[in-house]
Design a protein around this nucleic acid. Structure first.
Ligand SMILES: NC(=O)c1ccc[n+]([C@@H]2O[C@H](COP(=O)([O-])OP(=O)(O)OC[C@H]3O[C@@H](n4cnc5c(N)ncnc54)[C@H](O)[C@@H]3O)[C@@H](O)[C@H]2O)c1
Ligand SMILES: NC(=O)c1ccc[n+]([C@@H]2O[C@H](COP(=O)([O-])OP(=O)(O)OC[C@H]3O[C@@H](n4cnc5c(N)ncnc54)[C@H](O)[C@@H]3O)[C@@H](O)[C@H]2O)c1
Lengths: 237, 237
DNA sequence: AGGACTTTGTGAACAGATGCACAAAGCGCT
DNA sequence: AGCGCTTTGTGCATCTGTTCACAAAGTCCT
């Protein structure tokens, strides 16, 4: 049923093999670094200054060997017999992930989900600043959300260039998603986070990550089914 | 930068090896089946009755060999020289994923995100019925959302048992998430979808999947950074 | 200083996922 | 029926990721 080491993060799909060679950091590791970062953050807040791979691994829900191998890809930042300096490790992971820069995010589609995203504080906390909200519905245009005014879809290109948007978040209905994506890409956006239930076609130079509720539920359903259909087997051994 | 075959889905973490042996279906395949299902659904709507692995693969954003291997895990449902019967394949995938059953879903935490989820129509469409909304804030209790009344956290156990909830969705702040999760698990929920930015500890018998915005953004940031720092290299090659 | 103890970093074995390439299988046309 | 065309299903090589297990490297105590 559940995983040996809790709900680990995912590497959404194998990145081009070339990219591996360039940074030396495996995709699977990249997907876990943010988790470590989060855990380290709360350790730091609790006043912990040093942490062992074992303790950190438990808190992050992964195996300690995996954790050490992950960290070894960034360099040798631990001290044998002691562990890792929390603050320094936070810095190194942040640097590796590129979080020392700031990123401007635009949200396209300000419906139910878009509103939730626009109001979410957790975004800004790691250097992601929401700089623009865009919607096609004239009734939504002009609305103020979290200090930002909703702009009309017609202004998409203007707004993106004006704010040098580097990440586009698509929260429109599926039917418009490809269209919106094309327009984002054509004005230079190279990273897209897609919430619409559709596979986006993009040039190789653009990264897309998707968040798909319905897929998550279906995966859970698959395992749920297995559990119930073999319920007898559990007791029997 | 982008993936060889578009934004593929993920296998969130290697499931216990045992589970593999039991169903014979690799986790990575399970994670892609919902995508195929979606694409097949829209093909069916457009009146297509038969589809080749190549066409389906393109639409699903994966390689055709991968797609065929995925489908081969469910059985031999294609016809050589012809392709797959769309309707029949939809049925087989649904059956495999366990979507012939219905699942009752409870959402805990009806804030920004919880509201969006509660209003989302895409849930019900695949046999996932939202049967309960629960919140700790007395001011939210009693509110009607999408035909459901928000219940108080105190009633969590009652509500879960009453509706035979099989999937719990956690949309509370991180601080309460583990607590809520423990309570869900203790009243028999074995599948959890977690939106709170925290690693949940659960017994082995419980499946957790997480959706974490901030992690997705950080992964995008990593690749974004690589792109900009090596911008020169692209032209030079 | 030296020895016991702790913990990192990593080589090597293993496991899982992907992609290639082709034989086997079916279709339709003559 | 036979032939050529299409497309599936899969064995095999490869690549990516995980896990084990231990030497190297440090700390702390005497
Ligand atoms: N709400 C959820 O919980 C949820 C869950 C999973 C997936 N999704 C997906 O997220 C997307 C948004 O969901 P939602 O519930 O917010 O839908 P919604 O209908 O509430 O909002 C969609 C918004 O997009 C706007 N829009 C439509 N076409 C547009 C365009 N071309 N450009 C810009 N804006 C446009 C609409 O005016 C509307 O404001 C959908 O694709 C949905 O399938 C939503
Ligand atoms: N809003 C977003 O776009 C977004 C994005 C990513 C992650 N998240 C995460 O999702 C979660 C919810 O986000 P949100 O924006 O909806 O927050 P929110 O503060 O708007 O809503 C949280 C809700 O949970 C309720 N709650 C608090 N403790 C509870 C408990 N013990 N049991 C039941 N209900 C409880 C609160 O009363 C509130 O209604 C948070 O963990 C957040 O980090 C949200």
């Amino acid at each position: 049923m559940s995983l040996p080491d809790s709900q680990g993060p995912d590497s959404q799909s194998p990145h081009s093999p070339l990219s591996r060679r360039r940074t030396g950091i495996p995709e699977a590791t990249v997907a876990r670094l943010p988790v470590y970062l989060r855990v380290l953050g709360s350790l730091a807040e609790s006043g912990v200054t040093t942490v062992s791979s074992d303790a950190l691994a438990v808190a992050a829900g992964v195996g300690s060997a995996k954790l050490r191998k992950d960290l070894s890809h960034l360099g040798s930042y631990g001290t044998r017999g002691v562990g890792y300096d929390v603050e320094y490790l936070v810095y190194q992971i942040s640097r590796t992930l590129g979080l020392t820069q700031h990123y401007s995010v635009a949200i396209i589609g300000v419906g139910n989900l878009g509103h939730a995203l626009a109001n979410y504080a957790g975004f800004a906390s790691r250097g992601f600043q929401i700089v623009a909200l865009v919607d096609a519905d004239p009734r939504r245009v002009g609305e103020q959300i979290n200090g930002l005014e909703v702009r009309h879809l017609d202004e998409l290109e203007t707004v993106v260039k004006e704010h040098e948007v580097s990440i586009g978040v698509i929260a429109t209905p599926a039917a418009s998603a490809q269209d919106v994506c094309d327009r984002l890409v054509s004005c230079g956006v190279t990273s897209v986070l897609n919430f619409a239930p559709i596979v986006l076609a993009v040039p190789d130079s653009v990264d897309v990550r998707k968040v798909d509720l319905s897929i998550e539920l279906q995966i859970l359903a698959f395992h749920e089914q297995r559990k119930s259909s073999h319920a007898s087997e559990v007791g029997a051994g």
